[in-house]
Amino acid sequence: MFDVLTEYWPEFRSGFWVTCRLIVASFLVAMVVGTLVAAFRIAPNKWLQRLGGLYVEVFRNVPLLVLLFISYAGLRRADVDIGPWTAGIASLGLYTAAYVAEALRSGVFSVGKGQIEASLSLGFSYAETLRRIVLPQAFRTVIPPLGSLTIAMIKNSAIIGVSLLALPDILKQARIVQARTFETDVTFFWAAVGYLILTGAATLAFRFLEKRFSIAR
């Protein structure tokens, strides 16, 4: 059982790092774009709200695999020079951003209206209210859903490698090793360990954040 792991250690290790890089980069894209879209959705302008809503509905309801096909094979056929990394990170990031936007928006709405009114009547400006009253509290409520999204994103990252993109992540490397050794069970067991390490680490990290920033009652 361990001989497959030791013999093909370079493959497993590089696959693990490729997956790590993919999820870190996609997470950043998802957070930035998600925050922007959430800002659109709570903006006072109706058209901005609709634009944000359209983004969320489209990217939340389309399969990630379709996004990957569009952004890589589709754009390349259309003579757009896009690399596998860019396409993979953009697809996963933009896809997750729709969920991030929804989580952030519901976080902002979870702060009671009375608090905002109280803050405004105390003479805080709108920006100050947002920065000092709303966002710190919204941040707390948003941590658990962001944790779920991050775990879902780690799992979704496996789609990138096996679809047409030439990105050798954990699953892709497992397939390569499996094709060489025919040890399907053992190879996939070690790949599973790789994914469980990542999802487990994300679970623990977000649990820690949740505790760290929870309101003492």
């Binding site: 309801n61 389309v62 399969p63 379709v66 996004l67 589709g74």
Partner: peptide, 22 residues
């Protein structure tokens, strides 16, 4: 058929059905 258009079409199918479900 061009890949881009075909998969945009397929994506739209999913968006329509899943939007109704949501």
């Amino acid at each position: 058929a061009p890949i881009l258009q075909v998969f945009i079409f397929i994506g739209l199918l999913f968006v329509i059905v899943n939007y109704a479900l949501s």
